[in-house]
Design a protein around this nucleic acid. Structure first.
Lengths: 258, 258
DNA sequence: CGTTCGATTGAGGAAGATCAATTAATGTGG
DNA sequence: CCACATTAATTGATCTTCCTCAATCGAACG
């Protein structure tokens, strides 16, 4: 696939111009203010309970009765969906400002686990109290809907990645998204610590852990990523846009349709 | 994979009993009443505009300003996500009772297309009017949240299918879900018409159209599905639970983890 | 210092993609 | 109504990617 490490050649010489291949470093999005406001809006209108978690702690578990929602104030979390037949599947990752627990709404019972990946804090609010507060403070409705809609958008992104990208690109895309999620929230990206094992990343991306490992090694060989610490969990992405361009490059021969 | 058509042998003789392999025909879920109530609740509290669509018509398109939501009263719809680089990806399918348009909430602009797959009708409501009505009729809040949460659950299911099932099982799972979506809504399932081409199914499931075609042929050979009409678009699923069991059977050698 | 768990890397095989040819259904214009 | 074009679906042959199996290595921990 990319033994040559050719990073997304700017479209083959005689190709259609239909693909702008946008390479200008996109304006770095920063959501920190919006998130801080959201947190304040919640805390001002609903009684919250702060809860500190350590890596491995569960915020809630599948099967538990649903009574509360949780807003992430700090830390990172994985959402694990367990199907009836024993498969378990990491379906999304959550960061500061994201909500946890929507899955329990329709049936009153959670059908996912939410598990902390590192030390963090969530603000827990009663769902009943929250809906009542919505009547008084309509801004809360917009907040909630926005959060749910963003979660939907994230899911669509995952599906897109899994359905349309080869394994190496999936891993690259995963790393891009991770880095962007951090940078949008104002967290440091010059020293990223992967909080997932290769097996977990593979589970999330629909590939085996060996494939993840090989992909990461190749990306490192191409210097699209660099390891910093002793182990293989701390890394730097020197140029996130370059990494994103690599993802695009994996699609080169396929584009035209309709 | 299943040249012998062995349908989910009840676990290999000496295997762990950890996998119950539930085969009792699950109680058929029927959501018709809940959906009818939901539609009425909306119509009673918010001005709606009925809109009839024919196959291929768009309910809304990516890039359009978001002002309205839509509830499906009839017909089937595909949601297509187009990424910046030209990939387009079917991310979900919608039926009576589902909502369309949530993707526009956070940015005020849609980032998906919603396209009718056959003749149908949607009820269009102003999002502003709807949120205002939520204050007056709190049941609407629960309705909306339930709908969004169900959509999230559907997305997780898709991701799970794509990440953990081999191609043949994915197609089988897709057909199961289609049939169940219909039967839950009280629509006839003794004569299912696929409204998607093989290419579209493949796009949705992350495989090529040839793979879809082969999988469908094999399922038909095993009599897990049967074609009815002249073409290859009308089919019957004699035993949905049997088809679901086939999906499970594809996972046999993998289960244990942790 | 040995044990354990996670990660890396290689070799071989299998599932699925790609390329290509054929058939079937649908639509068009004469 | 028929010849023709067009689009969808099927099926086969080959090739690539990724999975599986296995060995090795490294870091962390008791």
């Amino acid at each position: 696939m990319f033994a040559t490490c050719a990073p997304a050649a700017p479209a083959t010489p005689g190709s259609t111009p239909a693909l702008p291949q946008r390479r200008e470093p996109r304006a770095p999005v920063f959501d920190g203010h919006r998130i801080a406001e959201s947190l304040r809006l919640v805390a001002d209108n609903v009684p919250i309970q702060r809860r500190v978690l350590r890596a491995g702690d569960t915020v809630y578990q599948a099967g538990q009765r649903f009574t509360h929602l949780h807003v992430v104030n700090a830390g990172m979390y994985k959402i694990v969906n367990l199907s009836a037949d024993g498969r378990d599947q990491i379906v999304s990752l959550k960061y500061r400002g994201d909500w946890l627990g929507f899955d329990g709404i329709p049936e009153g019972v959670h059908d996912c686990d939410a598990i902390a990946l590192d030390t963090g804090e969530v603000w827990t609010v009663s769902y009943d109290a929250l809906t009542r507060a919505c009547a008084a403070a309509p801004a809360l409705i917009g907040l909630l809907h926005g959060a749910m809609s963003r979660e939907l958008a994230g899911d669509r992104g995952s599906l897109m990645s899994v359905c349309s990208l080869p394994a190496d690109a999936r891993v690259a895309d995963f790393l891009c998204n991770w880095a962007r999620a951090l940078s949008r929230r104002g967290l440091r990206t010059d020293q990223i610590t992967l909080r997932l094992t290769r097996a977990e990343i593979g589970n999330y991306l629909g590939v085996t852990l060996e494939t993840v490992s090989r992909a990461i090694s190749r990306l490192a060989r191409c210097e699209l990523i660099e390891f910093t610490g002793k182990g293989r969990r701390d890394l730097v992405i020197p140029d996130v846009d370059g990494l994103a361009a690599f993802v695009q490059g994996c699609l080169a021969p396929v584009p035209a349709l309709h």
